[in-house]
Design a protein around this nucleic acid. Sequence first.
DNA 1: TGGCGCGTTGACGTTTACGTCAGCCGCGCG
DNA 2: CGCGCGGCTGACGTAAACGTCAACGCGCCA
Lengths: 163, 163
Amino acid sequence: MAVELRRPERTFTIRQLCLEFKCTPRALRFYEDKGLLSPARQGLNRIYSYKDRARLQLILRGKRVGLSLAEIREILQLYGKGDGGAAQNAKALRRFRERIVAFEQQRADIDEHLAELREACSRLEAFLEKSAPDLLASAADLPTPPPSGRSSTDRRLASPRHA
Amino acid sequence: MAVELRRPERTFTIRQLCLEFKCTPRALRFYEDKGLLSPARQGLNRIYSYKDRARLQLILRGKRVGLSLAEIREILQLYGKGDGGAAQNAKALRRFRERIVAFEQQRADIDEHLAELREACSRLEAFLEKSAPDLLASAADLPTPPPSGRSSTDRRLASPRHA
DNA sequence: TGGCGCGTTGACGTTTACGTCAGCCGCGCG
DNA sequence: CGCGCGGCTGACGTAAACGTCAACGCGCCA
């Protein structure tokens, strides 16, 4: 075989992934415990491949939209079984469709919430414009006041999940 | 005042609301403990007004989109303070805007997930159509197989938020 | 040789959102 | 009069998703 394999045959340490995706080593090991990841080992140390990285991305996106780790694992398992029997694939298809309708429902919920929030904002804006335009201006600025503020784009959305 | 007050001056028992919204008395009392609801009392029994019902709706929608009860309570409190000082309203406005961007982010995440899922479905469909059309047909049916299946529309989406 | 930094494995603690259970109350009914 | 139903109040249990802490290994380097 040539020296060059497929694409990026890079590997990552646990800390590199943690920095990149803003999570902790504990979390990655936890996902491993739960069967969501299974990085190679060099002695005791974990070595994450590019595929592992991709899986991690999927895990985190899943979390952001409120999936439980168990659900994410299920999806990942189905995903990885592109080669499995046709029955497996049919099952995967069903699961995927279920997920789709669930997501659509969730999207609709969000849209309703957004509509309500926007309307409430309009009312508040109108009210403040009459009563205290200065406060209105201050409200337009700083998403979070300096004290204990992280960066501008603060993640922390669904955890929620959640339950 | 006339005998007729505003709109539906109806009240609800805890069980009525539970049936309507598919939740348990325990949950409603829990929300009350946490300050999300505060129904009137008739002796010891809880009497929920129409406003309480509306709040409950908001709570459940919030949960579905991955908000924690603490976040929901905060929003409800801001909501209820339409009369408060202008500073309060300005704060509310900021909070609402934060929520809006968070929801938009979450919506985008969901859209990405949906796109991926749809693509995966297409591939699976194409594959199955070639290899086992019968299974494909079976996959189109029953969202959940009879054993241990609830109703057709099974909620249980975000819970997560839990974290 | 000692110490620092990174990594590992348990093990226990924590928060959220309830479930479950025991015990008590008031009410209608046969 | 008993009792079953619906409701109430604690109090304890639980599952998910990690945080935290202790104790250890390994390479390096001054």
